[in-house]
Amino acid sequence: MTRRKLRPDEEELWRKVADRTDRLHPEKPFHPDDFVTTPAPKPRLKHTFEVTAALGKPSASRPTTAVNLTPSIVDQVTTQPVQMDRKAFTQMKRGKLKPEGKLDLHGMTLDRAHPALTRFILSAQSQGKRLVLVVTGKGKNRDDDSPIPVRFGVLRHQVPQWLSMPPLSSVVLQVSQANVRHGGGGAYYVYLRRQR
């Protein structure tokens, strides 16, 4: 990235500031262009690749576009390694295990849902429950003309992240999308560790 040159008014202002200050290192040469701040280059996401504008090999004449390939929340939860007993995991995914507790977060805001989830999970674990159901809902299509994009299904995306952070990460053994009979894409099975 190349540094931009100071505009004449910026250079004049810089010289006024520099003239009124004492230099820390008078032996070093000074030029105002040496102190122009430039924006840091944007870090590349680890899940990106280059797409060419036209089919074929990329060349200097064809522009490329970076595409974000961060997996969806469903894919992230699905690809987690199985931490629990494989047979119990299969039964849970098929909806054969009955949840021992249920928390419905429908209609809650993020600032109300997070403490409710934390209380529910810690309470369930202290009562010796192993499998609980957290219902988030699938989210609504919002047709507002806001300039700021709103994520579809905010709680659905946030709950797995909350479950993977302390204090819940030490209690939760496995998170999985619920079977259709227990809510499907709008709910999560949370399998808890045994209380010690």
Rank of each mutant, 00 (worst) to 15 (best):
S170Y: 03
R119W: 00
T52Y: 03
E12A: 14
L173K: 09
R130L: 03
V17R: 10
S72C: 12
H31I: 06
L45S: 15
V135A: 05
Y188C: 00
S126G: 10
R44P: 04
E10R: 03
R112Q: 14
F49I: 02
T48D: 07
T65F: 11
T38C: 04
Q177F: 05
E11Q: 13
E27A: 10
G186A: 05
G128L: 02
K102T: 15
A187D: 03
V190I: 12
D33Q: 15
Q161D: 13
E12P: 01
V150W: 05
T38G: 05
D9T: 13
A116C: 09
K28T: 10
T64E: 11
Y189C: 07
S123K: 11
F35A: 08
K93E: 12
D144Y: 05
Q80P: 05
L117R: 04
S61V: 09
T78G: 02
P166N: 08
G137R: 00
L105Y: 03
K46M: 08
D33I: 03
F89D: 07
R4E: 06
A40L: 09
K16L: 08
S126A: 13
K93I: 11
P81E: 06
G185H: 06
R193C: 10
V150M: 07
L97Y: 07
E12T: 15
Q127T: 10
T136F: 02
L105H: 02
T64I: 13
S72G: 15
E12W: 05
A54N: 13
H182Y: 14
V190L: 02
F35V: 09
R194C: 02
G137Q: 02
T70W: 09
V132M: 02
H31E: 15
V172S: 03
A53H: 12
A18F: 08
F120L: 01
K16Y: 04
